[in-house]
């Protein structure tokens, strides 16, 4: 146990960086994912095509490849980052956005088609139908899968540890290397800090779900 207590400052620093990576990537992914879902149901064929291709590629390739691309290929193409965090955020948010797009799309499909027809029949345009009628109702069914995706994002952020970003898992690995006799304790400590992030997300999910439940 001593190793955990002695290393608390390091754990804490790693925890904060994981929190930062997850929060920033999460927000970007939510925005990007919603836009992709909107493109996927839009009347413009080019937008639908782009969204489909994006989602299929990012969803069906390993996260590590997204990281390689952001951290190594992009700089070679001339995109320079001051910090590797930026690359990590690009990789995490573009990857997660694909899953969010699919979740939002399934939510959109769960809203009865009559809602959109009624909205169109009073003269609303595509954007208004989506923003005022469909998305607010879709959100209610989408919250549980969205939280699942965000929990996965928190855990996926550990991949950043392998790409020069010292976050929680990165520090955990350093500590394990430095304390070869207490690897299990160190890893349990690491796991505990991840739980500190993910368990409240799960609780948030069930609270929000209860609050926004809607009668039909």
């Amino acid at each position: 146990m001593d190793v955990i207590i002695e290393s608390l400052p390091l754990y804490w620093e790693g925890f904060l960086r994981t929190l930062f990576l997850s929060a920033v990537s999460g927000v970007i992914a939510l925005v990007l994912g919603t836009l992709l879902a909107a493109a996927r149901v839009s009347p413009v064929a080019a937008l639908r095509g782009f969204s489909t291709v994006y989602v299929e590629i990012l969803r069906n390739t390993p996260l590590t490849i997204a990281f390689f691309f952001a951290a190594i290929v992009l700089p070679r193409l001339g995109v320079q980052f001051a910090q590797f965090e930026v690359a990590a955020i690009i990789a995490l948010s573009s990857y997660t956005a694909a899953f969010i797009a699919e979740a939002v799309r399934s939510g959109v499909n769960s809203v009865p088609v009559g809602q959109a027809e009624a909205a169109r029949s009073i003269g609303m345009n595509f954007g208004q139908v989506l923003n005022l009628i469909i998305l607010p109702q879709a959100l209610r069914t989408v919250i549980p899968p969205l939280i699942n995706i965000l929990i996965a994002l928190v855990k996926n952020s550990s991949v950043a540890g392998a790409f020069f970003v010292l976050e929680l898992f990165g520090y955990g690995r350093q500590l394990a290397n430095a304390n070869g006799d207490q690897v299990i304790t160190v890893l349990l400590g690491t796991a505990f800090f991840y739980l500190l992030l993910t368990v409240p997300l799960g609780i948030l999910a069930s609270t929000v779900e209860r609050k926004v439940a809607i009668a039909r």
Binding site: G123, M124, Q137
Partner: peptide, 29 residues
């Protein structure tokens, strides 16, 4: 959209906006 605004439609299954109050359903348009 503009032309549809001039044509009122009443559906078999009502299709009131489920997340809006009765008043909001009428004022939204």
């Amino acid at each position: 959209a503009q032309l549809r605004a001039d044509v009122g439609m009443v559906f078999q299954s009502f299709n009131l906006f489920a997340h809006k109050t009765i008043l909001e359903n009428v004022t939204l348009g």
